[in-house]
Design a protein around this nucleic acid. Structure first.
Length: 747
DNA sequence: TACAGTCGGGG
DNA sequence: GTGTACGACTGTA
């Protein structure tokens, strides 16, 4: 027997060993351990049918132990179930597949829980967690003990070895010529051709550095598939990028899926065993919170690093709920693959009422404070015990949901609040720690990334409550949250008005207020204290704006739109929402000019009227107009980027993006739903030129008039609130005679 | 004018 | 292996 301590890198099932664990031990050695880990799932239904299942399993070649038990279903309470325990975890999916095919009429539970989640729930050991292991001579784990909790703030950090791999171009656009391979110690550049020597170089790098993580650009979609294809074609067997040399890397196919109201495309994936591979270009959230955020999510969700890196945070939330359920002995229902179904009219009307959206007071306001509720929706779920199994349940101790009058059972903490409580607490603790650090402290970046990783888990958990395909979702719980949020925001509004503030705007979890006399930090603190006391929810001061503009609708300038605004905080920093520079389909030069204009306005001395900057501002726009007309702008600056929602042949109207997509398809460049197309507007038919076509667009074909119109619109967004009419803006920007008749005087 | 298609936002 | 629903806006016919 041998004792060792170390960090968990990875867990997976194996035909031979049952469960395989990779750890970094106290001496920095990477070790492969094994463990016996039987896995259980459940069937429920009429007694006679369960008896048939029992008989079926007895005769099945996969070894399993069955037992009759009572377990708790979250919604229907105690149920009689048939417990099926599979000796080797790797065989569980196969056995379940055979059982459900033979007995499709029964209810099943705990059928599709990721192995790492089962492991975390059973042993409290999670990816990157520190533990103590007692092992025998054959590296079998006999005993183990977790030495840290995913919820502690200070984390023990394993000494990870990282190898970065980066081609010199995006393979989707141009074939890379060389690859940069980097480690802590060195950086080397290797030519892509000849391919065999590239393969040998990568193999040598892997041998020399033995990385825990290969962090690549386009490793999923380009490099590794190419390398493997080459090995296949040439009959090469000596290349295996896994640390577990008995395993072959797993490839998963590309897919498109619907989320966040849009279609996302995910390229094929390339997963390794014993070490991780993350393709940062195929891990859609990577740019949001980076490696520290991904690792933080792996810790708290229990999902393997390679999985959580590529998945949406929704998968992480589900994993956390599964862990809670496993720990509390609650059955996890099998997820039926149900097609997206249409909502009934009744459902539509009911679901219609979301978060509170107020009509802002259009125009320019000075000295405005913005107060935000921190993680409001998750906070409400925890505070009011909102969970699918507590909403609508009348018990000894219930609370009524405002407006809806539906009871919420308070007798025991719900599954969703129980899952979120530590997550919320940890994010708040990290934010508190951040507030106490100097801006240049070396811990700041990683703490921020970790907080962002946690934030995204919290953000999506609300959506999951109302999601039909979620395990623990229920529309009434979803509505309860929005009902409470409206109530809380209205109560904050009353509080503000009681203290002499005018409420200019409210939006879901934020309110903008202005004091009748003067909005001052001290007064706002007092207001916040009062709001916090009345609502018992955490709030934060987003900032005090020197000035802020709430924009009207472009189609009717009497109608305010709730989420189009821009403003400048006291420290001179900008905040903009919903305007051209925020949109991903705005050509870069237009977005840049608009931002530069806003920075010019932000730089004005505190009490100077914004109109005094008009000559400078018009000058900036005119410069942009002149650059465009003279053809001085690089064509990249004119690119419009849009995400397409469907294949080329399914477009019913030939929108610019659809025409660009068709051009690409004609030249053999496939774009899938969820991928982006880039194009420039050109004169005449077809009006666009796709950027990634084999030949570069003709610079003289640029549809200058169209870009000028886009510029005028972006200028109008900023200038209209400064009392410059759109026609005036157009003539100021486009007229050659402008210099002679300066319309705005300098002060 | 109706319809089709994309974007934002959370933070 | 995938939050929702919706309004604003633009471009096409």
């Amino acid at each position: 027997m041998n004792e060792l301590q170390g960090w968990l890198l990875d867990v997976y099932a194996d035909e031979k060993h049952g469960l395989v664990l990779w750890i970094i031990d106290q001496d920095g050695a990477r070790r492969q351990l094994q463990q016996t880990f039987p896995v259980t799932f459940y069937a429920a239904g009429p007694f006679a049918r369960l008896r048939e299942v029992w008989q079926f399993i007895k005769d099945h070649p996969i070894v399993a132990i069955t037992e009759r038990e009572q377990r708790r279903d979250l919604f229907s309470g105690q149920r009689d179930v048939l417990t099926i325990e599979v000796a080797n975890a790797v065989q569980q999916p196969q056995l379940f597949h055979d059982v459900i095919r033979r007995f499709p009429d029964l209810d099943y539970y705990d059928t599709d829980i990721p192995l790492a989640i089962r492991y975390a729930a059973k042993h409290d050991l999670f990816p990157l967690g520190h533990g103590r292991f007692l092992i025998d001579e054959a590296n079998n784990i006999r005993e183990l003990e977790a030495l840290e909790s995913p919820w502690q703030l200070e984390i023990s950090t394993p000494p990870l070895k990282i190898l970065t791999i980066e081609p010199d171009s995006n393979p989707q656009h141009a074939p890379p010529r060389s690859i940069l391979i980097g480690s802590q110690a060195s950086k080397i550049r290797i030519p892509v051709r000849p391919f065999r020597s590239l393969l040998l170089s990568i193999r040598a790098s892997l041998k020399r550095h033995d990385p825990d993580l290969i962090l690549s650009h386009w490793g999923d979609t380009w490099l590794f598939p190419r390398l493997l294809q080459f090995c296949n074609d040439e009959g090469i067997t000596y290349f295996n990028p896994n640390r577990d040399q008995e395993r072959q890397a797993v490839q998963r196919g590309e897919n498109s899926y619907f989320t966040y109201g849009q279609v996302i495309h995910r390229g094929r994936q390339f997963h390794l065993f014993g070490r991780w591979h993350i393709d940062r270009r195929n891990a859609m959230m990577f740019s949001e919170y980076g490696l520290p955020g991904v690792l933080e999510q792996a810790r708290v969700t229990g999902l393997p690093v390679q999985e959580i890196a590529r998945k949406s945070p929704g998968a992480g939330v589900t994993a956390m709920q599964m862990q809670t359920a496993l720990r509390q002995g609650i059955l996890v229902p099998h997820l039926k693959q149900q097609a997206e179904q249409f909502k009934s009219v009744a459902e539509l009307i009911r679901a219609d009422r979301g978060g509170l959206v107020y009509q802002p007071l259009i125009g320019l306001h000075r000295n405005v404070a913005e107060i935000d509720f921190i993680s409001m929706y998750p906070g409400l779920m925890v505070h009011f015990n909102i969970s699918p199994e507590t909403v609508g349940v009348q018990g000894e101790n219930t609370r009524l949901i405002p407006e809806l009058g539906i009871p919420v059972d308070q007798a025991r903490e719900g599954l969703v609040p129980a899952t979120l409580r530590p997550l919320l607490a940890k994010r708040l603790a990290i934010k508190e720690q951040l507030a106490g650090l100097e801006r240049r402290d070396c811990r700041v970046n990683s703490l921020k990334a970790r907080a962002a990783g946690l934030k995204w888990l919290l953000v999506v958990c609300f959506g999951y409550l109302g999601y039909k395909n979620a395990r623990f979702g229920r529309i009434e719980a979803h509505e309860a949250v929005t009902a409470y949020s409206r109530d809380v925001l209205l109560s904050a509004k009353e509080t503000a008005e009681d203290l002499g503030y005018q409420v200019l705007h409210m939006y879901v979890d934020a309110l903008w207020v202005k004091h009748a006399e003067e909005t001052k930090a001290g007064g706002v603190r007092q207001l916040m204290g009062e709001i916090a006391a009345r609502t018992d929810l955490p709030i934060a001061l987003e900032g005090i704006y020197r000035w802020i503009v709430f924009l009207p609708s472009r189609l009717d300038n009497r109608i305010p739109v709730p989420n189009r605004y821009f403003g400048v905080f006291e420290d001179g920093s900008l905040k903009t929402r919903g305007i051209e520079c925020n949109r991903h389909d705005t050509p870069p030069f237009i977005a840049k000019t608009q931002l530069r204009v806003l920075e010019k306005l932000a730089a004005l001395p505190e009490h100077q009227p914004l109109r005094s900057a008009l000559p400078d501002v018009i000058g900036l726009w005119r410069q942009s107009v002149a650059d465009l007309r003279a053809g001085r702008l690089p064509l990249q600056q004119l690119l419009v980027t849009q995400r397409v929602s469907r294949p080329s042949d399914e477009f019913r109207t030939p929108s610019p993006a659809a025409r660009a997509l068709a051009q690409l398809a004609n030249s053999g460049k496939q774009r899938h739903p969820g991928q982006r197309v880039r194009f420039i507007y050109t004169r005449g038919a077809p009006g666009v030129y796709a950027w990634d076509l084999p030949t570069a667009p003709d610079p003289t074909a640029v549809d200058t008039a169209r870009y000028l119109e886009l510029l005028v619109r972006a200028a109008d967004t900023i200038l209209r609130p400064l009392r410059v009419k759109e026609e005036r803006t157009r003539s100021c920007l486009l007229s050659n005679a402008y210099q002679q008749e300066l319309p705005f005087t300098r002060h």
